[in-house]
Design a protein around this nucleic acid. Sequence first.
RNA 1: GCUCGGGUGGUGGAACUGGUAGACACGCAGGACUUAAAAUCCUGUUCGCCUUAAAGCGAGUGCGGGUUCGAUUCCCGCCCCGAGUACCA
Length: 943
Amino acid sequence: MNLYFRNPSIITMDYQFKEIEKNWQQFWADNETYKVDNNSDKPKYYVLDMFPYPSGAGLHVGHPLGYIASDIFARYKRLKGYNVLHPMGYDSFGLPAEQYAIQTGQHPAVTTEENIATYRRQLDQIGFSFDWSREVRTSDPEYYKWTQWIFMQLFNSWYNLEADRAVSIESLVEQFEKNGSSAVKAVSDEDTLVFSADEWKSFSENAKQEELLKYRLTFLKESTVNWCPALGTVLANDEVKDGVSERGGFPVEQKKMMQWSMRITAYADRLLQGLDAIDWPEPLKEMQRNWIGKSTGASVIFPLEKGENSIEVFTTRVDTIFGVSFLVIAPEHELVSSLTTPEYSAGIETYIAQTKKKSELDRMADAKTVSGAFTGSYAINPLSGEKVPVWIADYVLAGYGTGAVMAVPSGDQRDYLFAKHFDLPIIQILDAQKDVEHEADATKEGRYVNSGFINGLTYQEAIPVLIEKLQELGAGKAKIQYRMRDAIFGRQRYWGEPVPVYFKDGLPHLIEENELPLILPEVDKYLPTESGEPPLGRAKDWLYKGEAHYELSTMPGWAGSSWYWYRYMASQADRESNSFAPKSAIEYWKDVDLYIGGSEHATGHLLYSRFWNKFLKDLGYVIEEEPFKKLINQGMIQGRSNFVYRVIDEEGKGTNTFVSYGLKGQYKTSAVHVDVNIVENDVLDLEKFKSFRPDFANAEFVLENGRYVCGVEVEKMSKSKFNVVNPDDIIERYGADTLRLYEMFLGPLEQSKPWNTNGIEGVFKFLRKFWKLFHNDKFEFEVSEGEPTKAEYKALHKIIRKVEEDIERFSFNTSVSSFMICVNELNELKCNKRKILQELVIVLAPYAPHITEELWALLGNEKGSLSYAAYPQFIPEYMVEDEFAYPISVNGKMRMNLNLSLSLEAADIEKLVLENADVQKYLDGKTPKKLIVVKGRIVNIVI
RNA sequence: GCUCGGGUGGUGGAACUGGUAGACACGCAGGACUUAAAAUCCUGUUCGCCUUAAAGCGAGUGCGGGUUCGAUUCCCGCCCCGAGUACCA
């Protein structure tokens, strides 16, 4: 602590952040200052943060970065006269609590509750203006009731391509009853039946249900899943990294399993199109575009030389079809065995065996090696009539497109390498292709050669001709292919939302809406059952109406977060009503105006949320096509680790001596992480170090300039690296306002940066100087009533405009600097005038809400009214200057400044500049070649 | 490989539409106050050269070119760092 505060003569009056902050936080809570109403004449503004998973470790200084930015924005918008919805909650279902439960037997609900309490305490200390009355917790039955309800709506819907939206499953049944399956244009499974209306009516009820399941937007499907035996669960593709689970790093294998899925692919195109209409960072949109992976091309059917079968391929370059010299199908392709001739079966079998042995990792690492095997069979090019050999190779993926490609070695480098390796023909197809014997040339320029009826045409001309021909022959058609898969929607886990489904005759049925929520049952252990069923299999007597079995898997982590922003729209009273949010509230708040969060959610949460939002819109429950109008990614705060250097003796053993960073070159040393909290400005606190670990108690040091300097490295912030900085400690020492300002001062919001507490003193000093503007030398509150000078008005209005501009473009760091400049200027001017200071208090309020509330009250305003005061009006007249110090540059190099009246026109300036004695020195008697005068900006003399 | 960011003093960073590069802050150095320390205040601080000093000169925003009276900013080529993604047909 600062000894300064111990001086009894001043202790009562200097900036007492602890008391001030505690009082105001209490005041805001007692008066529900930030409680927001759904009925208001003011325009609405919705500022949302990505809600946290309440982990056991609590918040570190990286977490609140985005929350501080959004809070500044929310407070600013209130001052600008908006009715601001700024809520917070918890994504409280999740693996860590369950893992902890497995280890300790503690119910996840209990640990989650404790963690939430810690988070809440930490959040409250920072002075956020959240409306806590609207808090949500995804693990609360009153909340997940509605997650389950949305699941039911998805189950009861199908995607009608004609209307291009989701509609009720009843309408599909109607169509089947009227016209059978023929006229239905739907996004569905691939194995749907073809039937007439009469045939439909003759189906048994179970057969009907089985068929409808192929259309429902959430459906059961045998899928190949990423099965993680160690976790006893299925993981989504984005939860698997390099063949191991992202969480825990356990091995993952492919396994077939009945799984709930979400037909997100139905929305692929709308998810892609929608990106153009929203104000999101370009990299993030790009990630979603890549994830959706739309390719426009054609599907082409290559009949086999022998037999009835054919191979369908997808290509984005149907124009290269005359350059096809072989086909390649995936080793897992269903036709492989029938295609393989006895002569080649040994080779094919060996190759398949090889492929199976390769892990996902090996296949990736091995991208350069060419491998494959010939099946012995041939297919016929439908346009040229040529016979082309069919190969298998593991570079063709069974899961993408049709699992088969037409290979064009002259146009595709991968095909080229394959052709070279196995000595297959390389056919040039465009006259603009260069040297196709040497490498592939994927150009679309020039005119076709060796290409039958498209010879002489350009790319643009050839495509429609080819598509038409293929359709005429029944050999293909234009096709759009997506990379995105349907999302698997089940986890073999305990701590998640139960799926509101029971089974009868092996078919899934929804429970009744009035039976929601389906409460998560108690279990004796949080592990899979002996028979390998999910933990819910342990629940005693957990049966629908006492007989039917419930679904035993639970919903994935993203279920509860895919719609939570709508629950916030429901006030506490609204939550009694029978909807996830009242229609009137949704009509008022509409969508999120500003969403701040990390880019790690680019393809998970943000894509699923957009999907559910579009679905809810199709059904008329919400009104906007896109949920998050503007999105900002805050950068990650990295850790900044400190190291001490332990001297190693001749035998290679660590000694008890530690050498300062600058001198470590003279010794053999090993670096040891040291807690950053006992290091200041990279200088180690020796006494604290000795008590840091018992084995350091008798440590000796080799110092430089009397100090021990630590080494530095930027790493992830984590306990094991001793580089975690807790906001509680910062607040204890400097207060929340300093923390808020400093987190912003650190640099641009969107940039990742290491946390370094070194500069915080500067921000703290700023707040004390700001406080001092309102106090005399005896630290008594004192402002004067006089009319401010022009310079004083100018300093104020400069900051009024600057902060406005900065906040609108999310440049919070530059505002903090500008506040410092403003206070330095007012300090210089010895300004303590109410007319200046009162407005300055409002401008600073979003950034430092506590100190400004205190001063606002001291200025005699109604307590707590600052949050809803009016942001001061910028008056440009105060900025008008009549003189300007023109920078005079010679040949583009700045040489001097010349004070000139701003009323002067270019010609006058020119004259005055050339007459100036200093300028003459540079001219050295010569006449300048050119003289550029930009009024109010610069003068450049070219010699 | 592809896509998207980014590269500016000892450090974090500023320079918004092509117009004074290094604001603001940290650190460091020196000084004032003090018995002393802390706190506070003042001065200096891009680098190099020159000078007792004042001042002056030169270089400078990853590297190499270009456009321009003028480039951290625009264009071309390259290097490095970070993120995402991948035999995607």
